[in-house]
C-alpha cells in the first residue's frame, strides 16, 4: 500500500473523509458514484494569523506580452520550453486590434480538474491553491481534458537535468517534474510560504500582475498595495469563462495595453 505523500502544512481533511468512505463501503474496489462536490473547503477564518486565500489580479492595461513571466516560471521550476504554466495569449478582437492575456492556472474554487481525478492526486490546500501530487498521479490526463483553460501540462518527456539533484519534489515545490505525470502553475506556494512574491510577478516589468489575499482583502504587485475588493470594483475586473461555474481565483482588468505609454 503506497504511503500518503509527505505534505508540508495542514493535511486535507476531506481526503481522509473520502478515504474513510471508500474503506467502509467495499473491500478494495471503488464505488461508482456521480459528481460529488469537489473537495470541500475549510471555512476561511477572519484574518486570524495569516490564513490566506490567494487570488491574482492581472491588469491587461499594462501587459505588453513580453513573456518574462513565462520565462521566470520556467526557470524557477526547471521546466522544459513548451511548459507554459503561465501562458501569454495574444487575443485578437474583431476590429483587428489585439491585446495580451497572461493565463496562469486559475486555482478554481469549483475546479473541474479536482472533480475528475481518479486518485485525488490533485487537491486544494487550505490557502485555495490547487496542487498536484506527482507521486500519486497515474497520468490518465483526465484533468487535462476537463480543464476549460488548458492550464495543465503533461510531462511527456523526461524533464531537463535537475539543478538540485538531492531535492525531493513536493506538491508545493514540484521540482523536478516527474515524467508521466501532470504539472501546472501553483501560485508559487513554495515562495509565498517563505514570504516571497511569485516568480512571474517579480519578473513582470510592467507590474501588471497582482497577488492578493481574499481574507485580508489586499493585493500587491510588489510596488503598489491596494484594497482588493475596491480595486476589483473600481476597475470592473472580470474572470474568464466564469459562467462555466468554475469560480476562478484570477481576475482580469480589461485593457489592451493602454497604460504602457505611461
Amino acid at each position: 500500500m503506497a504511503d500518503l505523500p509527505d505534505r508540508t502544512g495542514p493535511s486535507d481533511p476531506t481526503r481522509r473523509r473520502l478515504l474513510g468512505l471508500f474503506a467502509t463501503s467495499s473491500a478494495g474496489i471503488a464505488l461508482a458514484g456521480t459528481g460529488l462536490a469537489p473537495i470541500a473547503f475549510p471555512e476561511a477564518a477572519a484574518a486570524q494569523g495569516k490564513q490566506r486565500q490567494w487570488v491574482m489580479v492581472i491588469d491587461l492595461r499594462k501587459c505588453d506580452g513580453c513573456g518574462d513571466c513565462t520565462t521566470a516560471c520556467q526557470t524557477e521550476h526547471e521546466l522544459p520550453k513548451n511548459f507554459e504554466w503561465i501562458k501569454v495569449f495574444e487575443v485578437k478582437d474583431e476590429r483587428g486590434g489585439s491585446y495580451f492575456m497572461p493565463r496562469p492556472c486559475f486555482q478554481c474554487e469549483n475546479a473541474p480538474c479536482l472533480r475528475v481525478c481518479p486518485v485525488a492526486a490533485t487537491f486544494r490546500d487550505d490557502e485555495g491553491v490547487v496542487l498536484v501530487d506527482q507521486e500519486r498521479c497515474i497520468g490518465c490526463r483526465m484533468c487535462m481534458a476537463a480543464c476549460p483553460y488548458g492550464a495543465r501540462y503533461f510531462n511527456y518527456v523526461e524533464p531537463p537535468e535537475p539543478k538540485h539533484p538531492f531535492h525531493k519534489p513536493t506538491p508545493q515545490f514540484p521540482v523536478p517534474q516527474q515524467q508521466g505525470t501532470v504539472g501546472k502553475c501553483m501560485f508559487c506556494v513554495h515562495r509565498t510560504d517563505d514570504g516571497k512574491l511569485p516568480a512571474c510577478l517579480e519578473a513582470c516589468g510592467m507590474e501588471a500582475i497582482y497577488i492578493g489575499d481574499l481574507v485580508e482583502d489586499i493585493a500587491t504587485n510588489g510596488n503598489e498595495t491596494v484594497r482588493l475588493s475596491r480595486f476589483l470594483k473600481d476597475n470592473d475586473a472580470y474572470r474568464y469563462k466564469e459562467d462555466l461555474g468554475t469560480g476562478p481565483r484570477v481576475y482580469y482588468i480589461a485593457g489592451h495595453g493602454q497604460h504602457l505609454d505611461n
Binding site: M1, A2, L18, L19, L21, F22, G28, I29, A30, L31, A32, G33, T34, G35, L36, A37, P38, R115, V116, C117, P118, V119, A120, A121, R136, C137, I138, G139, C140, R141, M142, F154, N155, Q178, Q179, G180, T181, V182
Partner: peptide, 26 residues
C-alpha cells in the same frame, strides 16, 4: 494510455467516487 501505468493500483487504493475514471473501472 496511462503515463504511469505502474501506479494503476492507485485507482483502487485511492479511488475518488466522483471521478469518471473510477466509474469506468467499476
Amino acid at each position: 494510455d496511462l503515463g504511469r501505468p505502474d501506479r494503476f493500483l492507485n485507482v483502487l487504493l485511492y479511488a475518488q467516487v466522483g471521478s469518471p475514471i473510477v466509474w469506468d473501472v467499476v
